[in-house]
C-alpha cells in the first residue's frame, strides 16, 4: 500500500530494460572493448559488425561513430509476413508466436546442483539472445519488439531501407494486436486467463493494471466461488469414476 508504484514493471521500466538488448553495429571508428557492468563489449574494428547494447549503439549513432543494422524481423518483407499472420482469419485468436527457444542444454555437469549451473539455464522470451541483432530470427516478433523498433526508427531511421513503410507496418501490427487483446478481455474471469503467448513486454505493461483490476474485482464472494469449484471438482471426480467403471466393462467384454 505504501509503495507508490503498481506491481509489475511500468512501461518506462520496460523501455529501459529494452536498451540492454544487443544490436548489431557497423562501426566507422575504432573503439577498444569497454568493461561494462553487463560484461565486456567486443572491440570495434571497422568495417566488421559488432554486437553492442542498444543504449551504447544509440549513443554512438548520435555521435556518427557507428551505423546500426536493423534486426532481421524489422524490414518491410518480414513485417508484412507477420502482419498477414496476425490478420489471417485462421489465426484470428492467437498472437504471432515469439522466437524459437534455443535447444535445451541438457549436457550440464551434474556434480553441482544442475539448476544452478550457468550453462544449464533455459532461456525464455525476455532473455533470449540475439533477438535484436542482425542474426535475429526474421519471422517472429521478439519480446521487446515495440520498444526496440520505436527506438531504432526514431534515432536511426537512416539505417533503414524504407523507414516510412516499416513505421506504417508497425503501427498496423500494434493496432491489430491491441484489438486482439481487447477481445481477450471479454473472457476474463476470476479463474480464467487470457492466452498472451507471444505478447511483447510493453503490451503486457500497458494492460497489466486493467486486467489485474478486473480479475481482482471478479473475486466478489470468493469463498462462494471456491465452494462452487469444490462442488464441480467433486462432480468431475464422480464423472471420472463412472468412466473408469465403463472402461472396466469394456475390458470385460473384450
Amino acid at each position: 500500500m505504501a509503495l507508490p508504484l503498481p506491481p509489475g514493471l511500468t512501461p518506462a521500466e520496460v523501455g529501459f530494460l529494452c536498451e540492454m538488448e544487443l544490436v548489431t553495429v557497423i562501426p566507422r571508428q575504432r573503439l577498444e572493448g569497454l568493461e561494462l557492468l553487463g560484461g565486456p563489449t567486443q572491440p570495434m574494428i571497422p568495417p566488421f559488425a559488432t554486437p553492442l547494447p542498444l543504449w551504447l549503439a544509440l549513443l554512438l549513432k548520435k555521435q556518427r561513430r557507428a551505423n546500426i543494422s536493423p534486426p532481421g524481423w524489422l524490414n518491410v518483407e518480414a513485417l508484412t509476413h507477420i502482419l498477414d499472420f496476425e490478420t489471417d482469419e485462421r489465426t484470428a485468436d492467437v498472437f504471432s508466436p515469439s522466437p524459437r527457444l534455443p535447444q535445451p542444454t541438457s549436457t550440464a555437469p551434474l556434480e553441482e546442483d544442475p539448476y544452478l549451473a550457468h550453462d544449464a539455464l533455459e532461456l525464455s522470451p525476455p532473455f533470449l539472445k540475439d533477438a535484436a541483432t542482425a542474426q535475429a530470427q526474421d519471422d517472429a516478433l521478439p519480446y521487446h519488439w515495440l520498444e526496440l523498433s520505436h527506438l531504432l526508427l526514431t534515432h536511426a531511421a537512416d539505417d533503414f531501407d524504407d523507414p516510412d513503410a516499416v513505421h506504417r507496418l508497425l503501427r498496423d501490427l500494434r493496432e491489430v494486436r491491441m484489438s486482439k487483446l481487447r477481445k481477450g478481455f471479454r473472457v476474463l474471469d476470476a479463474g480464467a486467463g487470457v492466452k498472451m503467448n507471444g505478447m511483447g513486454g510493453m503490451e503486457v505493461a500497458e494492460v497489466r493494471g486493467f486486467v489485474g483490476g478486473v480479475v481482482d474485482g471478479l473475486r466478489i464472494n470468493r469463498s462462494r466461488e471456491e465452494a462452487r469449484k469444490e462442488e464441480e471438482a467433486e462432480q468431475r471426480e464422480n464423472g471420472l469414476g463412472s468412466s473408469n467403471y465403463r472402461d472396466d466393462e469394456d475390458d470385460d467384454m473384450l
Binding site: 503498481p6 511500468t10 512501461p11 505493461a205 500497458e206 494492460v207 486493467f210 489485474g212 483490476g213
Partner: peptide
Amino acid sequence: AAHDGSNAV
C-alpha cells in the same frame, strides 16, 4: 488503471 497504462506507454 486502464487509462494510466496506455498513458504511461
